[in-house]
């Protein structure tokens, strides 16, 4: 297979059920290598569920997911597991461990050579050295999110999945997180990011997939989405206005947008 044509993530007609209820309805899209893809949608749209499927934390009831051309079902091969780093919505650094210890454990799980040295490098790169020996309860939310991103990037995975990485952070800290994501993008990492901050999606993402009630309604660039929504109603929309137009206010119409994918 031509290496250049392999997508980092292929999501093919994915359906998912939770507790007897269908929560994803035939989602299909791809994320190219080195691309930053935004995943937008209202609360309960299915963004985190889709991320869990990509990470192998649950089964698709139908459809398939491929990572770098390799099947990525729930019982995936360890080589496929090594491709993905996740920053989940919930801060999940082990409460008993310091940030440094947690990162060393993580590095060892991923078989990173010279784990301690690599962790020290990452702590330095993410400007975390001054509080690396504190436990999660002793650091702020912003530090926690930064540590989570550093930890996910530690084993140098090809694909990074960031589930609301800047939620609850003040604008200054959010800018810091953006800077780190941009640095990861410059390193050629493929990034899938969910967010409720439209300016964040506008600023960081090459393309955006919008989902609502478990259905994919649009995949385009931020400008393409603005233009599409503007063409339907008014001119000069921001991404937030376009998002509200497509996802919230005209939900019923949005259901019919599949043809513009």
């Amino acid at each position: 297979m031509d290496q250049e044509k392999i997508n980092a993530i292929d999501i093919i007609n994915v359906h998912c059920q939770a507790k007897g209820k269908e929560i994803l309805h035939g989602i299909s899209f791809s994320v190219k290598m080195g691309e930053v893809m935004g995943l937008l949608g209202p609360n309960g749209a299915g963004k985190t569920s889709l991320i869990k499927l990509i990470c192998g934390l649950g089964p698709c009831s139908h459809g398939e997911i491929n990572l770098m051309g390799m099947p990525a079902g729930m019982d995936r091969d360890v080589t496929v597991k090594a491709l993905v780093g996740l920053v989940p919505q919930v801060n999940n650094i082990e409460p008993e461990l310091t940030v440094r210890e947690s990162m060393i454990c993580y590095a060892e799980l991923y078989g990173v050579p010279q784990a301690k040295q690599r962790v020290a490098e990452m702590l330095d790169r993410f400007d975390m050295l001054s509080w690396a020996d504190k436990r999660p309860e002793q650091i702020s939310g912003g530090m926690h999110r930064r540590a989570m991103i550093a930890r996910a990037a530690l084993p140098d995975p090809e694909i990074l999945i960031l589930d609301e990485p800047s939620v609850g952070l003040d604008p200054e800290l959010r800018q810091g997180i953006w800077q780190q994501i941009e640095n990861l993008k410059k390193m050629g990492k493929t990034i899938l990011i969910t967010t409720h901050y439209m300016e964040e999606a506008d600023h960081l993402c090459d393309r955006i997939a919008m989902i609502k009630e478990g259905k994919l309604i649009l995949v385009d660039t931020a400008q393409g989405i603005k233009d599409y929504a503007a063409g339907r109603h008014t001119l000069g929309l921001t991404l937030e206005e376009a998002y509200l137009e497509l996802v919230t206010q005209k939900g019923a119409e949005a259901d019919g947008l599949g043809s513009c994918l």
Binding site: C55, K81, V84, N92, G111
Partner: peptide, 15 residues
């Protein structure tokens, strides 16, 4: 509670 098991499950360590 801590949601740390997913870290283990996602790591390239076999079941």
């Amino acid at each position: 509670y801590h949601k740390t098991f997913q870290t283990l499950k996602m790591s390239p360590v076999s079941n």
